[in-house]
């Protein structure tokens, strides 16, 4: 399970955390919880969703309390720092969008990123968040609308053609 999910969880943490140190903490704590609660981890693909569910809670706690770094893992610190370094340079336009994105409610950002970054479908998101599929649909609709409105208000124009990011299968 570790082998299969490590890449996903590190990517998730890196996408969601502002600093590589935070991301390392989230990764370490998430797997530590999984280790301690091994018997509760479901089989197969559900295991991944279960881990996302744990990671998001760790992430939430992380923002609430200033955690002391639990274990010193210099290798992981370095690898995570490299991952942040390797992140594509954001242009001015993207920086402005990122600024607006950050100003969205936490729940909106989480939902939008689970769709666009983790590429989960509605059912999977419902599992991760522990809510119904219909609730996901409604909340997602609202989150997208708020983001769109915020972008429009800030007069940020963005053409999807200008980015190489292909529009993957959407919801």
């Amino acid at each position: 399970m570790y082998r299969e999910t490590y890449g996903l969880i590190t990517a998730y943490a890196a996408r969601r955390c502002d600093s590589p140190q935070d991301a390392v903490d989230v990764v370490a704590e998430t797997f530590a919880i999984a280790w301690r609660r091994m018997g509760e981890v479901p089989d197969g693909q559900q295991a991944t969703l279960w881990l996302y569910g744990v990671a998001r809670k760790v992430l939430a706690n992380h923002y609430r309390v200033q955690v002391r770094r639990q274990s010193l893992n210099v290798e992981l610190d370095a690898e995570m720092a490299d991952l942040y370094q390797a992140a594509p340079d954001s242009g001015v336009e993207l920086t402005a969008i990122a600024h607006i994105f950050r100003a969205l409610p936490d729940a909106d950002r989480e939902l939008l990123s689970l769709v666009a970054w983790e590429e989960l479908d509605r059912q999977q998101i419902a599992t991760v968040l522990g809510i119904s599929r219909n609730a996901v649909r409604i909340r997602l609709h609202r989150a997208r609308r708020r983001f769109a409105r915020a972008l429009a208000e800030a007069d940020v124009h963005f053409t999807s053609e200008s980015r190489s990011a292909p529009a993957k299968e959407h919801l």
């Binding site: 992140a87 994105f101 666009a116 970054w117 983001f147 963005f158 529009a167 959407h170």
Partner: peptide
């Protein structure tokens, strides 16, 4: 569009 924009913000 919203998803494409969001995608572009992903660090990884």
């Amino acid at each position: 569009d919203i998803d494409v924009i969001t995608r572009a913000l992903a660090r990884v």
